[in-house]
């Protein structure tokens, strides 16, 4: 179990500054929703947490210890897994191989290939197919299964419902809820504000690289979020 904390997190793309001193706490065992308009810095935040963007060591703390500035593969092996935006399955790999890639982080835990197939039986039927030949929802299952196979303590989900049918989204969120009940910390970045707030314990609203609103999900009125979201 781990708590991830960012302290004054900044990030740049060349001359362009994307994040301006974010203080965010992703508490162990809780679900945190991060919402905000396009360009608010949500994806950049996820990239910084996972080490795809290099940060100063003390900008990110895992269980109180500085963890910034490390390579992505080191961070992933510490129990943070990512379901990236757009799923990013590997086209040259079969469904099963895509899932097995998750085991390369070499972490032991409750998740195995068989268990992923139990949760998503359709993937077992199609395990020999190319990952990218599946439907969008099934691809998302592969992406989630792949992340779970690294046996993470924190699961980051970036826009998992984008472009999927409502019924599929329902199913994915049921899975997310089950994962939460097993004690996994979950971070969801979501366009659908109402849904995000419904499943979350904590909510952070980003605007232009800063936190414009944060608090416990049950204390926050959707009205406030709308204001924070659009900066009215």
């Amino acid at each position: 179990m781990s708590t991830i904390e960012t302290r004054g997190l900044t990030a740049h793309y060349g001359d362009f500054q994307a994040l301006f001193g974010l203080d965010v706490t992703l508490r162990s065992g809780e679900t945190t929703a991060i919402i905000g308009a396009n360009g608010a810095g949500k994806s950049t935040f996820m990239k910084a947490i996972t080490g795809l963007i290099k940060t100063a060591p003390d900008m990110i703390h895992i269980d109180g210890a500085p963890a910034g500035g490390r390579d992505a593969h080191t961070i992933i092996s510490q129990g943070i897994a990512m379901v990236p935006e757009g799923r990013r399955l590997f086209p040259s790999l079969s469904v099963e191989e895509n899932l097995l890639i998750g085991t390369h982080a070499k972490r032991s835990g409750p998740w195995s290939l068989d268990r992923v197939y139990d949760v998503f039986p359709v993937l077992k039927e199609r395990r020999r197919l190319s990952g990218t030949s599946l439907s969008g929802g099934q691809q998302q299952m592969v992406a989630i299964g792949r992340a779970l196979l690294s046996n993470p303590t924190t699961l980051l989900c970036d826009e998992i419902s984008l472009g999927l049918a409502p019924v599929v989204i329902e199913e994915l969120y049921r899975t997310i809820a089950e994962l939460r009940s097993e004690g996994l910390s979950i971070v969801i970045v979501e366009q659908d504000v109402a849904r995000a707030v419904r499943v979350a314990d904590q909510v952070y609203c980003f605007m232009e690289g800063r936190v414009s609103l944060s608090g416990a999900a049950q204390d926050i009125a959707l009205e406030d979020i709308r204001n924070a979201y659009f900066g009215i």
């Binding site: 992505a72 992933i76 092996s77 990512m82 990236p84 990013r88 040259s92 790999l93 191989e97 690294s150």
Partner: peptide, 24 residues
């Protein structure tokens, strides 16, 4: 082999490979 799978994954999408804990 495992390393072969990593070759292919990294070739497809190096950033996603790093997100899977692969030391590209």
């Amino acid at each position: 082999t495992k390393i072969g799978r990593e070759f292919r994954a990294t070739s497809d999408d190096p950033e996603a490979a790093r997100l899977m804990g692969i030391n590209t």
